[in-house]
Amino acid sequence: MPVRHIPQPVVGVLALQGDFEAHRHRLAALGAVVRLVKMPDQFREIDGLVIPGGESTNFLRLLGGQGMAALRACVRARPVFGTCAGAILLAAEVENPAQPALGAIDIRIRRNAYGRQIDSFIGQGRIDDQACEMVFIRAPRIVRVGPRVEIVAALDAQPVAVRQGTAMAATFHPELSDDPRLHEMFLGIVARNFAAARDLSAIDRGAQHPRTA
């Protein structure tokens, strides 16, 4: 008897530039099926996307107008998790300086808000009232949080990780620490979203795969 194939969600990591390998390692260690993605047409082949740390100005240049439009469509339809530069891309508004963003999470974010590299630091923050090591590298700061945004993690009572719907953002680098909680939380969102989309498409028309929706 043939073994029934159980579909698993595919988690994409935007791999244009930055520490995408660190995210890939963490996600793979947590058992996820990971695919590095660079081109807009690949955004349709994934069930969730991680936007890594790097330089947000580089991401904007490489994506261009067309790539940003495809990415905006992707993060509307699928779970997304951005760290540092990724968080900047997901924000509603960016300052220092102002630049285009995807508006997936209703926050205003300030680039290089803690200073230059010599001001980079490793801090002890809180996730759900439990201590969490947080690596901040030329990090941005969330300066406004919209009413529908949930604060997931804080450092000195300031928000450093947030969530709105299926979109998550962290101003620090959980991929550079041993603590897997934020990636686990994201994979939980991806799994629930994937299962829900499959149920819906099963009701709709049986065979249709959620990614084609």
């Binding site: 791999a15 244009l16 530039q17 930055g18 520490d19 995408f20 390998e21 660190a22 740390g53 790097g54 330089e55 580089n58 540092c84 530069a85 590299q117 980079s120 690596v135 590298i137 030329r138 680098h173 550079l176």
Partner: peptide, 10 residues
């Protein structure tokens, strides 16, 4: 090295 990680691919 963390900052160097952020420069990768660039």
């Amino acid at each position: 090295t963390g900052l160097a990680e952020m420069l990768k691919g660039g």
